[in-house]
Simulated assay, not measured.
Amino acid sequence: MRARVRKILLAESSLLVRQQILRFCKQKRFQVHPICKERKSHGEFHHLHSRLLQYPEKFMEYYRMRIDTFNYILNNISKHIEKNTRNQKTPIDAVERLALTIRFLATGNSFRSLAFSYRIGIATVAKITREVCAALWTSLVSKHLNRKTNEEFIKIADEFYSKWGFPNCIGSIDGKHIRCKRPPHSGSMFFNYKHFFSIVLQGVASADYKFTAIEVGAYGKQSDGGIFEASTLHKLIETGEYEIPEERNLPGTEIAAPFVMLGDEAYPLRKYLLRPYSKTNLNNDSELFNTMLSKSRKSIECAFGIITNKWRLLTKSIETDIYGAELFVKTICLLHNIIIDKEGVCMQTLMQVQQTIPINMNRQRQYNRSSEAATTIRNNFKEYFVQKNVIFT
């Protein structure tokens, strides 16, 4: 009995010791670390930002946008990210918060690396980047990534025809795998066919490489077609809530055709979504259609290429939880649209991206049962290109 009591007392005392050790370890040695107190004298922002403003080309290189675009974003979100002064402490102001977040998205540097260079705590860096991205999304998504109206879709279709030669097209659609840290207890749900963990960005792009619709967060193991059919965009189209215009005649003909999106072989054939003809038993007319579709789909491929080239976070594994990764990717897509609206497309970047786009990716979709109406619509577009005697340069 005494031995049993002695064991219980020893167990209780060791538990108390462990709790005291943990409590001691959790105690902060500093309210603000001495290194962080040097933020205004040695921090990267305080002795570099003002100099960059004097050299616009260097500002562009550092922040991936012009000074006026940076100020436009700042003016729209500053009231949402500014902090009040408390306990006689000077908070980090809005411009530094935005600069830190843009630099994180542009470089993909770790929170720890940014914490040392900006002289800010690691937890503070993580908090600031999320807060700024959330404020940016809330404040500017309705202006630069809003759901398109009937008239806007018609304008997009006219631009597609003028630039790419494909009539009645309201966008090209594709998916992009974004590397992420494997969420706990997720098994193989996020493990994709390229053999890394990812979430999927599904995007629809207009003729000028801007995103007209995005959806982020699908499992990496899903196919593009499966992601589309499970997406909000698909549900909106099927229920008629997506304002796609009524059909109109193809240019210079009496062939009536609906407005459509363009996908690759991984997507299903629908009345509002065209995919290439199967490469088996492909005749000249079908090959002509496939070539025109592939050519016009470069808009979404280029859009993905531009954001990857500019925002280097997308080239690395995003070391946050899934919700943080989704927020950062959405913000990058929004910044992409803002920059194009304010500055246009950088032709040098576009030319670099176009040289890296893979040609004729053969991704077949199994069990693709298309309706007779969808097949007829695709055949009508094929006949249009044959009648027009399209010549490729």
Score class of each variant (00 low, 15 high):
Leu145Arg: 01
Thr280Cys: 10
Leu335Trp: 13
Ile322Met: 01
Val5Met: 11
Cys25Leu: 15
Ser13Pro: 01
Ile67Tyr: 02
Gln19Asp: 14
Trp311Tyr: 10
Ile199Val: 08
Phe160Gly: 12
Lys235Met: 14
Ile92Ser: 05
Gln355Tyr: 11
Ser41Arg: 15
Cys333Tyr: 04
Pro251Leu: 08
Arg248Glu: 13
Lys194Gly: 01
His42Ile: 07
Thr69His: 06
Thr291Cys: 14
Arg119Trp: 01
Gln364His: 13
Thr69Asp: 04
Met189Arg: 11
Leu282Tyr: 15
Asn150Pro: 02
Asn75Met: 14
Phe59Glu: 06
Arg270Thr: 03
Phe259Ala: 07
Glu152Asn: 05
Val216Thr: 08
Ile154Asn: 00
Phe196Trp: 07
His33Gln: 06
Leu140Pro: 00
Asn360Glu: 09
Arg275Ser: 00
Val204Lys: 06
Arg4His: 07
Arg270Ala: 06
Arg119Ser: 00
Val386Met: 07
Leu22His: 03
Glu238Gly: 01
Asn249Ile: 10
Asn76Ser: 09
Phe116Val: 11
Met292Pro: 05
His195Ala: 08
Ala213Tyr: 12
Glu343Arg: 05
Ile154Phe: 09
Ser113Ile: 06
Phe70Val: 05
Val141Tyr: 00
His234Val: 11
Asn249Thr: 13
Asn283Glu: 06
Asp93Asn: 11
Phe111Ser: 05
Ala256Leu: 14
Glu61Lys: 15
Phe166Glu: 04
Cys333Pro: 00
Lys382Ile: 05
Ala94Gln: 08
Tyr161Pro: 06
Thr90Cys: 08
Asn362Cys: 11
His46Ile: 05
Asn109Cys: 10
Gly220Lys: 09
Pro183Met: 12
Lys143Ser: 08
Met351Ser: 04
Lys181Met: 12
Arg369Cys: 15
Glu151Arg: 11
Leu48Gly: 04
Ala266Phe: 01
Val204Ala: 12
Arg297Gln: 15
Thr375Phe: 03
Glu243Tyr: 08
Asn380Met: 03
His177Phe: 09
Ile255Val: 14
Glu319Trp: 10
Val390Ser: 00
Thr291Ser: 11
Lys143Ile: 07
Pro34Ala: 05
Thr90His: 09
Gln366Phe: 10
Ile237Glu: 05
Glu319Asn: 11
Leu140Asp: 01
Ser50Glu: 11
Thr356Phe: 13
Glu96Cys: 02
Phe385Ala: 08
Cys180Ile: 08
Lys221Met: 04
Leu334Asp: 03
Gln20His: 10
Ser296Asn: 01
Cys346Ser: 07
Ser13His: 12
His49Glu: 02
Gln88Trp: 04
Val386Lys: 09
Met361Arg: 03
Asp158Ser: 07
Tyr277Gln: 02
Phe385Met: 10
Thr376Lys: 11
Glu229Trp: 04
Ser278Tyr: 07
Ala374Val: 06
Val141Ser: 12
Leu10Thr: 06
Asn389Leu: 05
Ser41Lys: 15
Cys133Asp: 06
Pro258Gln: 13
Glu215Met: 10
Gln20Asn: 09
Arg112Asp: 09
Phe59His: 09
Gln19Asn: 10
Phe70Thr: 02
Lys295Gly: 02
Leu9Gly: 01
